[in-house]
Design a protein around this nucleic acid. Structure first.
Lengths: 207, 207
DNA sequence: CTTCATATTGTCCTTTGGGGCAGTGACACC
DNA sequence: GGTGTCACTGCCCCAAAGGACAATATGAAG
């Protein structure tokens, strides 16, 4: 699996060495001397890649950068690489979703394994998001009214009840309902509910 | 949140000390000198509680016990507590779902925080499983035929298609369908699909 | 002012879903 | 042989959903 590896480390000689090793393994590499440099690069989250991140770097620390990226909605997998790992930092990083936490010096085997896992995971996550994105896009084309009808439909309400709750007639609900099925590109109520469930639009306790 | 804390550690004096501290904090405590002792106790997974687990203990190690418990389907949260933490072990433990990884000596604050989090998480997980369990129980009461009909219904097939695929008539499908709705205790197709989705019975790509 | 999107509604007809009532046939268990 | 469960099915009727054809009303955009 090809991919772009972002190396963030303040040690120039380390960056050069790592870059050489990764390029040998067939990866594209970009290096950054600081977390800020990385943030300034404003990357495409969808492109296959991962981050090799040092914990202790001048300015924004590795974990701080991780938080920022998470807050910004990034899903680039992060592999921490550090000289001195303390337990709380390690635990926190992994809990926050880091792919791995390695210590320098790192064997090529461990490093490449971690990168391969990171890329695989990102790929799976991306394709999963991709499917949901299509649904969200369709959902966005619904008008307010259609969206209200949608919500009630997937909660199992029948047209009569929907009409009552929205203060309109059954005939009108049918019209909106038709539009909803059309715009969401589904052909059965089952598909519609299934999508709503995946988008987390349904309360765990029905009703 | 009250709960039972299982302390697994080979150091007798440590067990006594920890037990005292935890009881002071209002927890029930049971101690074990080895992982095997813990396994022999054959615990109830549903009872509120967690495990305080040493990494290096004679016989089965902490991480090994963790694997066993996971393989056995246990959902008791585990908090590792160890003297010397190496990074790979820490990473692996957290990735495998441990609630935390603390180093001795541990402050009461950190320890009690971790225990509280573990109990809260277990509680949330248990209630979530509980809801699903009820569905699974209902599902288990379906006959073979009803189950087949169920599967086709939630995939959006209409009675006519279901009848054709099962080589029977529409009237018969209706009869089974009625039984399905009855036994699953739902009142709409939407609820049925929602349940199927939560039980992971629907392919991510419909059809 | 015209055009477009949105929301609304009516009439009429067809297809589906849901269910009552009644009965048949296979098979297992006691 | 009696009893039960499960699967199957026909006839009939009602409720709900889907859709064709047609039309009104309103507000924003150009």
């Amino acid at each position: 699996m090809p991919g772009l590896v972002h190396v963030v480390d303040d040690d120039a000689s380390f960056r050069t060495a790592i870059e050489r090793r990764l390029k040998l393994a067939g990866y594209d590499v970009v290096t950054y001397a600081s977390a800020q440099d990385f943030l300034n690069a404003a990357l495409d989250d969808e492109q296959p890649g991962c981050i090799l991140l040092d914990v202790r770097i001048p300015g924004l620390s590795g974990p701080e950068l991780q938080s920022r990226l998470i807050a910004a909605g990034s899903t680039l997998p992060i592999i921490f690489l550090t000289g001195h790992a303390d337990t709380p930092t390690t635990v926190q990083a992994i809990k926050a979703g880091a792919e791995d936490f390695l210590t320098k010096p790192v064997s090529s085997e461990l490093l490449l394994d971690a990168i391969a896992r990171a890329l695989a995971r990102q790929d799976a996550a991306r394709s999963h998001r991709g499917r949901l994105e299509a649904f969200r896009a369709h959902l966005a084309t619904l008008t307010q009214r259609e969206r209200q009808v949608f919500d009630l439909i997937v909660r199992g309400k029948i047209n009569k009840q929907i009409a009552y709750e929205l203060g309109t007639t059954e005939r009108t609900v049918k019209a909106h309902r038709h539009q909803v099925m059309e715009k969401m590109q589904v052909h059965s109520l089952a598909e519609l509910v299934s999508i709503a469930e995946r988008l987390g639009m349904l309360d765990p306790n029905g009703r």
